[in-house]
Amino acid sequence: MKHILKLNVNGEDHEVLTDIHKTLLEVLREDLGLTGTKKGCDLGTCGACTVLIEGKPYLSCLTLAVAVQEKRILTIEGLAKDGDLHPLQKAFAEKGAIQCGFCTPGMILIAKAFLDEHPSPSEGEVKKAVAGNLCRCTGYAKIVEAILSVTEKI
């Protein structure tokens, strides 16, 4: 059954006529064209689809779009403010934390949620925070390094 969903994504209000049984991942990618959020496993076990809802990390493949209406949804496309990249985006690029880049949007967003809660974490805490976000290219080393480099700046 189609339904009009009211979604606030990256600070903008959207009305989307779509199926009620669609996941947030599907609505973001298919109805809003926000393909920065990736589908890696579709079963909540890779983290590639991570978005922030009210600042908290959510697996958008296991979130019903209808259930997060009127919440503030942040995807990777909304992270840079007025064209200014978020420090994490810069750090990931500069430190070589991005290879194929498929895990990157989810990885950066979960790191953001985590750093917002823990501004100066230990290396172990960073690893734990991103452990649900799988990466096959980097061996995580430079990802952890990039996240820690941002904490130093803060």
């Binding site: 990618r29 298919e30 064209g33 926000l34 393909t35 920065g36 959020t37 990736k38 589908k39 995807t75 990777i76 496309e77 992270l79 840079a80 990249l85 985006q89 810069k90 990931f92 690029a93 500069e94 070589g96 991005i98 290879q99 880049g101 498929f102 990157t104 949007p105 950066i108």
Partner: peptide, 23 residues
């Protein structure tokens, strides 16, 4: 030189298009 990948920022901002991102 330790140059960042040319497409790193495209990937960091979600603009990089993978096959399934095309429509």
């Amino acid at each position: 030189k330790r140059e960042p990948m040319l497409d790193a920022l495209e990937k960091a901002t979600g603009r990089a298009k993978f096959t399934d991102d095309l429509t």
